[in-house]
Design a binder for these strands. Structure first.
Lengths: 240, 240
DNA sequence: GTATGATTTAAACAAATGTTTGAAACGAGC
DNA sequence: GCTCGTTTCAAACATTTGTTTAAATCATAC
């Protein structure tokens, strides 16, 4: 609250931010292809050419929409994991704490209606299943180091679980969260539920037990190879 | 193998099918907005105008792409559920069997590389988080009766679990499966895994335990209302 | 063969897209 | 006041989009 001396002193260099905010909202509502630069600039009440002037292209704008918030999100995830590993002092961190670090940070950001975090996380959730090549490449790069760290932590925490299996379950957890935070209810499953209004943390409280439950589920039986009868130990092993 | 007397006797009324097949593949690869009618018709090797001639519009084509396979999928789901309820003879069907009926049918279809089921299920998985209004409306209508039946079955199978909670977990399971069958690995988590090639059932064997584990997870603590200290029973209740 | 209805074809349509342009307006430093 | 680099602006650009049109072709029954 320093700069605002006069009410609306004609926006200056905040044109960038206005574009980013408008783009974030419209991408969330209508997708990347479904949002034109004209929709963005008219919502942001800036000139059409300013998207290309400030960002170079629509693709670059899309990337900036993500970078703006993703950088903080993933730094925060690493910070929490760092602290957990510091507390553990060399010992493995409990699996549910690792999951809580990765997904909890995201869910808390999604619960933040004030600073646009909610809108962004809805967009991010949708974007996990975006077909566009350049977006997926970009996302994977942004996540690379975080994913590596969390993979390592989970491997260490679950030494008896096949690494493949851990990765698959990470994959499944990601899918469950992505769809949940996208806010889309494609099958109208939740229309009857009162949507836990004015309780931003509700989703996290409901989702986290589900994720942990999935992670800890008994391991699947190995594939029954027809050429040799594999003797599988019948009592299912717990994943952690 | 009845009609093909001469090799390629000039395609006739199978133009519809050729368009549907091409559209299915391209929608899966590039999304609805990212796929133009020209891409579709050139891949199908039919004339540009035939999309509008046979289907009326691109939107109608999209709907037909889904209807063509979704009708069978959901009929099959209901058939399996019918049989389960018949076997149970009035008693509640075991929750994991209900889940297996709903998701197992989908996963088996996704494992069918021969008849295009694989491509379609990838498309369907992606489409759950499609922002476009008319597609979501259409999907919800197609699923309405199936969802009602499975909701009822789960309510009956889990009488002690709050219905809201059941719906949320159905929602979470749906998200996990949708992302998994979409075949998209946005965070490149699974690049190190050998992708269980030539084992189409692998995904189901891995996913089902995860879903069941999530469904059976301990119920979340109720929201801590600040105005009154709610005494929550501390031992977490199992969901089934 | 000829007529009739269904289908295919090439060409064109208007509308919308991302991007570029060159001039105008602005802001800070002198 | 003047200058210079930055930002804004209206207009235009070339493509691409979904769709339509009217003629040509095909298939079938008489």
């Amino acid at each position: 609250m320093v700069t605002t001396t006069v009410a609306e002193p004609r926006q200056q260099a905040d044109t960038r931010e206005r574009i980013l905010d408008a783009a974030e909202e419209l991408f969330t509502l209508y997708g990347f292809d479904g949002t034109s630069t004209r929709m963005i600039t008219s919502r942001a009440r800036v000139n059409l050419a300013s998207v290309n002037y400030h960002f170079g292209s629509k693709e670059a704008l899309i990337q900036e929409v993500f970078r703006r918030r993703l950088t903080w999100l993933n730094h925060e995830r690493l910070r929490v994991l760092d602290e957990l590993e510091r507390e553990a002092g060399g010992a493995p961190v409990k699996p549910h704490l690792i999951v809580e670090a990765f997904f909890g940070v995201a869910l808390r950001m999604a619960a933040d209606e004030q600073h646009g975090g909610h809108t962004f996380m809805r967009l991010l959730g949708r974007t996990y299943s975006e077909p566009s090549e350049f977006i997926r490449t970009f996302l994977a790069e942004e996540y690379e180091s975080v994913v590596e760290r969390f993979k390592a932590a989970l491997f260490k925490a679950l030494p008896d679980v096949p690494r493949e299996e851990i990765l698959w379950r990470f994959h499944f957890m990601l899918g469950a969260m992505a769809y949940a935070i996208s806010g889309i209810d494609a099958l109208k499953l939740l229309t009857d539920c009162q949507l836990d209004e004015n309780d931003p943390g509700a989703l996290a409280r409901r989702l986290m037990p589900f994720l942990i439950g999935g992670l800890r589920a008994p391991l699947p039986e190995p594939a029954a190879k027809p050429e040799k009868a594999v003797k599988a130990d019948k009592k299912p092993r717990q994943a952690d």
